[in-house]
């Protein structure tokens, strides 16, 4: 068990990091909002990949579902943002829950291929349904009401930053709590040895469906945030490429620890930001090289590296 001050410090890490980044990049709040939103998505991915131990290449399906749902909701129902977030989260959870009933009967490579297939199917449906979704042109033309009726969305992304940071904070704190509940521990146990959990009376399939649905809801929430802050939803939000990209972020930071999702997203996006401005064509090469080095020499990701350094400095063995 971590001590009380460490726990509180952990809870405050997200707003602190947000403020530090804001001080470093005061004129780039839209970019910082983007990082926060991506971090929420990568956190949700960590639930599936890191905690449940299920490698997926279809996680963007839930993000895109949430984004389109929030966009359509703002366009046709009500442009109030908070209920829009709920709409996005529900859409993500519904897509995840419905597909999980099928997915969680598959294992390994079959599972991985099915996540890709489901994601492709959704992509094609959204792409063909031009009248509703705008197809290749994307979904746009909606404007958002002020958050809580007070804070207006602005062109510079000031509100987008605070709004996204607040949602990220809430998600991070709640997930940290969830991981130490009996449910969270059971999910980890299933990752370690599903058969053993079954022999103790645990319902492996049901737990996987629940955690996948929950993860889908959070991914949908991130999608909704993205739709509301950018006010455009594109097909790429559903793509397998995007699913792969967020998986790279997670592996970079380290799976199975929520910090890994945050660190990975931050490092990836910042490298992307700089490398792409130096060489817009070959920036992925740089990311690729870093990833190879991490996977070969530091399989636990950057946060594992930090833990090792910390252990070395304090003279203790790393966990």
């Amino acid at each position: 068990m971590t001590s009380f001050p460490t726990r509180i410090l952990g809870d405050l890490a997200v707003p602190l990091a947000g403020l530090i980044l804001l001080a470093l990049y005061p004129s780039q709040q839209a970019f910082l909002a983007q990082i926060a939103i991506t971090a929420i998505l990568v956190l949700s991915l960590d639930l599936v990949v890191g905690f449940a131990g299920l490698a997926t290449l279809g996680h963007a399906a839930m993000f895109g579902a949430g984004a389109y749902a929030a966009g359509l909701y703002a366009l046709h129902v009500w442009s109030e943002p908070l209920t829009g977030l709920i709409a996005g989260a529900l859409a993500g959870a519904v897509v995840a829950g419905a597909t999980a009933l099928m997915l969680m009967r598959a294992h390994g490579l079959t599972f991985l291929m099915m996540t890709v297939a489901i994601s492709q199917v959704l992509y094609e449906i959204v792409s063909k349904a031009r009248d509703v979704t705008g197809g290749d042109d994307g979904l746009f033309g909606f404007t958002m009401q002020p958050v809580l009726g007070v804070w207006e969305f602005d062109f510079f992304g000031k509100l987008a930053f605070w709004y996204s940071l607040a949602v990220l904070w809430i998600v991070f704190v709640l997930l940290r709590r969830l991981m130490v509940t009996p449910f969270g521990q059971t999910v980890r146990a299933i990752r370690d040895d599903a058969g053993r959990v079954g022999s103790l009376g645990g319902r492996v399939y049901r737990h996987r469906v629940v955690v996948y649905t929950l993860s889908g809801g959070i991914a949908g929430l991130a999608g909704a945030l993205s739709a509301q802050t950018v006010q455009v939803v594109g097909l790429s939000s559903l793509s397998v490429t995007y699913s792969a990209e967020i998986l790279v972020m997670l592996v970079l930071g380290g799976t199975g620890r929520l910090w890994g999702a945050l660190v990975g997203t931050l490092v990836f996006t910042v490298i992307h930001h700089y490398a792409a401005s130096i060489d817009p064509v070959r920036w992925m090469l740089f990311i690729g090289l870093i990833l190879v080095v991490i996977v070969l020499f530091l399989p636990g990701g950057l946060t594992r590296g930090i833990a090792l350094i910390h252990a070395w400095l304090t003279g203790r063995r790393a966990p």
């Binding site: 009996p182 103790l200 009376g201």
Partner: peptide
């Protein structure tokens, strides 16, 4: 604890 969680039927408990 994983055993205890299942014995006491708390595997769906999402609150501490």
């Amino acid at each position: 604890r994983i055993g205890a969680i299942h014995r006491q039927r708390r595997s769906y408990a999402i609150l501490r």
